[in-house]
Design a protein around this nucleic acid. Sequence first.
DNA 1: AGTGAATATATAAGTGCTTATGTAAATATA
DNA 2: TATATTTACATAAGCACTTATATATTCACT
Lengths: 315, 315
Amino acid sequence: MDAFNLYKELGLGSRLARLSDILMREVQLVYDYAKIDFDPYLFPVFKMLIDKKVATTTQICEALCVSQPAVTQALQKLKKKGLIDFNNDKHDGRVKLISLSAHGKKILPELKVLWKVIEDEVKPLTYKKTESLIVHLQHFEIQLKKEKISDRIINKYQKIMSQKTEIIPFESKYAKDFKDLNIAWLEKYFVVEPHDSELLNACEETIINKGGFIFFARIDEKIAGTFSLIKVSDTSYELGKMAVDPEFQGRKIGQKLMEFCIEFAKKQKWDHLLLYSNTKLENAIHIYKKYGFREIKQEEEVPYLRSNIKMKLKL
Amino acid sequence: MDAFNLYKELGLGSRLARLSDILMREVQLVYDYAKIDFDPYLFPVFKMLIDKKVATTTQICEALCVSQPAVTQALQKLKKKGLIDFNNDKHDGRVKLISLSAHGKKILPELKVLWKVIEDEVKPLTYKKTESLIVHLQHFEIQLKKEKISDRIINKYQKIMSQKTEIIPFESKYAKDFKDLNIAWLEKYFVVEPHDSELLNACEETIINKGGFIFFARIDEKIAGTFSLIKVSDTSYELGKMAVDPEFQGRKIGQKLMEFCIEFAKKQKWDHLLLYSNTKLENAIHIYKKYGFREIKQEEEVPYLRSNIKMKLKL
DNA sequence: AGTGAATATATAAGTGCTTATGTAAATATA
DNA sequence: TATATTTACATAAGCACTTATATATTCACT
């Protein structure tokens, strides 16, 4: 028996509170399961910092419509968890500039994977054909209880995390995936240059038939990422066109592709790999360095306008 | 700016909590304004006690889906406010039987007036054509902020409380109101006896034309209550058919009618008033006593089956 | 330039929920 | 019939919010 249905508008405040409690507790279970040190109540503040990069306490208060002490306390908690950094504003000694810490940025991909699962699982419960908020809440509550939402989320997450990433060589039927992944990536960070279009529209001719290679990361029959190796000489190849579908980000696909790439290059007895990138892509550069790439002098005539750094890995 | 809209499902928990907070605070302002010592969070427990008459802590926990300490604490608060009584269960020494106190019952009508206003004002904000709970909540939030809901409720309450109750004599056009009010009342507590139908269907002939009187409480052009004085002898009249529209309950209309009635009877130089009632109607009996009616012996042949008490007021 | 008001954040205390635990009575079990 | 388990409620402590207030810095104004 659930007496709230009878109380309608007057019980609305209590009902919202109770639903919030249930949902928060369920999501907490999910973070605990995933061994991520994060609390659901921190989400709005943290998400705002992700989107805004830098914010002040007051800005967060206004955006989230909560009291200033609530934000201060949430920030202290996030700081304690090592997820954010505080900096002083040079122009105003009162102001505290808040941003994600290195650790915060590091666990972001992992968090995003989990968030996507949560969103995917919660969303279907929030749709119902009714004009009444009370009925909507009642429906949501029933759905929440029917099968513990945390169990559903954990199952889905587990399934996703246990999916194997296969790395497969180029086939003509994947040409479109190659193009789409790269264009999505380019449009997000730069623009599609003529040189790109040319390459992407006819990758088989421009890369494969000229002695290059293209590989794909396949997860559960879906193409999740790609990279190519363009022939420069018999023992020198350019690593490029590395792209991961945002849907699959946070699952270390980039790293898996990189590891495969280096392994492959070694087997081919190549001398070295080259790549062109942009210092703006801090995370990418960081990974390249991690796998042994070192910056070298860039030639005058760069093949891409966006490139401002050239790197080399001696195999 | 309100960042929650961007966060959708993931911010849902926080959003529900925040909405609950806002609503609770707003309603608290209303109770404070009305000088009623009550808190919105107590509503579910208190309402359950109103409906169930008696309940145990465990029963309330189960019905409201909250933890046992939450209920215990709410009960302690209600007890402190004098709204409820605790009694021991004769059959089980562990169990605490909880029911409304005399004071709780007393302020109930007043509370109900306020609750009706709150419900009337909140309800329109909870309707929106959308299938998405998120959109629904967003809409509700905007509505809440647009004009402070507490202001709206207080204005409406003030308006209702300042409406004057006029007491007006019988006119033929009110015959239907007289019948409807009485039938509604009878059906709620007893059954409509043949004697009632007769009287109510032709009140003009059976009451007015036989030297009796019917009066109405009129509020804002609407008939809110009624009572009749049936002639027994030149100096003895029977007070009866007193009924108040549930919509107007809690506004002391019964008492106003009673005061008018006694005043009127005195002016007429009658010797006394009589009435038939039922001890089941504790509140009514209480009011009769308050206005000076005393129990007298009931004749063998009672005019109403439901009557088990006869009372008399010496004017 | 000096002083009061305004602003940004921190701290303290209160509130209503939670979980964990305590206590007493009733029930099950041997 | 004695003992263990279960049940009903109370109490304690923690948590995330609130309001009230303190503190430090900047702004506005004469």
